[in-house]
Design a protein around this nucleic acid. Structure first.
Lengths: 223, 223
DNA sequence: TTACATTTGTCACATGGGCGACAATTTATT
DNA sequence: AATAAATTGTCGCCCATGTGACAAATGTAA
């Protein structure tokens, strides 16, 4: 199954493929805030998210954090390193209470060898993510900060928003700090831009949740 | 075969795997400057480089170019889209006269289905590239321009330089413009930094070729 | 309710680096 | 060799953003 997105393509597993994955691993629950894996650990397992959100980030020597991906229900993470071997080069953290299928590396390889179609699917998933990452690189260098923030909101809306006909319901809680890490800017700058967006009613907040976004109004910032 | 690099891992094909690939496609020569594929084309084939260098880049609406990858001899390109289907979202251009193995999509899938190990290898390649792309994202947001330029030189040296004991021989010709596109900056800025590097003898030029680099001196810029 | 921690609003200040411009140089073309 | 094209050197101007700092607001624990 493929779902067409902004410009990338998200590849999802069929249900029988999910069952294959489940049978090769063990289900484990992690509480919010827990680090699933950290830089330097040996990458001997891959993870499949049954439930919840996971943040993948890196930390530079100077302490600067950069969130390189966010994964959710139905997606794998920790894949690339488990395939290539070697050490983790990023952190994975539970953004809420999550349920994961943890698959040991050797079981994972056995699974793929016995199911060429699944191996192809994994390659497709990684390919889609590569395109996504390249698109991100492109965005970072070609848009100033407000544009990047708007693009982030649009992407989040596509992934997990509900179109109400009048704006897209999001109900997402992200601190300005977290957003800053995702688009490579500083926290005060995010606050500033958020206020502009609120003022021109391109987004609706409810407390600290981003409740709704209006794509049409947002898109003015990226053209 | 795996070769350990700066922080990523480059996955290469075994020679029997290369033969499999060759048998599934046709060898074609492209002259320097030729566009192998362009944005919007239907992605119905994958490419394997027998010989030469290929530049993968994107162009924004405002005309800004961003080089998202450079591939060389022994590497695939156009993989991700051929796997996922859909349209090309970037351009591939021959940086010199090149020889490619062109594999039609359906043949490629047949090949992978019949060789699970090769499918896994492809997944590994894409995984390694994803890590690479994420590392690039990290670099772009955490280093100012001079650091990014130095990191580019170090990476190029690792991929195609020869260690002479006294500096690394590179013999690479890239215009400042091309470099600017790779690290997301402007051409004048690249010229400026290059002069600094020449002055402090961190690099040696010969005409317009980057002849040699001295990693030790360069590394001062990224710490 | 009180106290503490986290998150957000907002400022003043400094600056990296983009942009435009044009000359100087090198390389390609005829 | 002569002309054209591409590449590089270098300026001055200016603004988007990072930094640091602190107050205000909101959420959480005791």
């Amino acid at each position: 199954m493929k779902t067409l997105k902004a410009e990338g393509i998200v590849v999802n597993l069929e249900s029988h493929e999910k069952d294959l994955v489940r049978s090769a691993g063990a289900k484990i629950r992690y509480p919010k805030g827990q680090i699933v894996f950290a830089v330097g650990e040996y990458a001997d397992r891959a993870y499949f998210i049954e439930n919840g959100w996971v943040k993948i980030y890196r930390i530079a020597e100077d302490g600067r954090r950069v969130t390189v991906a966010i994964r959710r229900q139905g997606e794998f993470f920790g894949l690339a390193e488990a395939l290539c071997g070697g050490e983790r080069i990023c952190y994975a953290e539970a953004m809420d209470d999550i349920d994961l299928i943890v698959i040991r590396k050797d079981n994972f390889f056995t699974l793929l060898r016995e199911n060429a179609d699944l191996a192809i699917k994994i390659a497709m998933i990684l390919g889609a993510r590569l395109r996504e990452a390249q698109a991100t690189i492109h965005e970072i260098v070609s848009w100033p900060v407000p544009g990047r923030l708007v693009l982030l909101l649009l992407k989040l809306a596509e992934r997990s928003g509900v179109d109400t006909g009048n704006g897209i319901e999001l109900n997402l809680r992200l601190t300005h700090e977290e957003i800053a890490c995702m688009i490579g800017t500083s926290r005060p700058t995010v606050s500033l831009i958020f206020n502009s967006l609120k003022n021109e009613k391109a987004i609706v907040m409810k407390g600290r949740d981003i409740k709704k976004i209006y794509p049409e109004k947002l898109k003015k910032w990226v053209k």
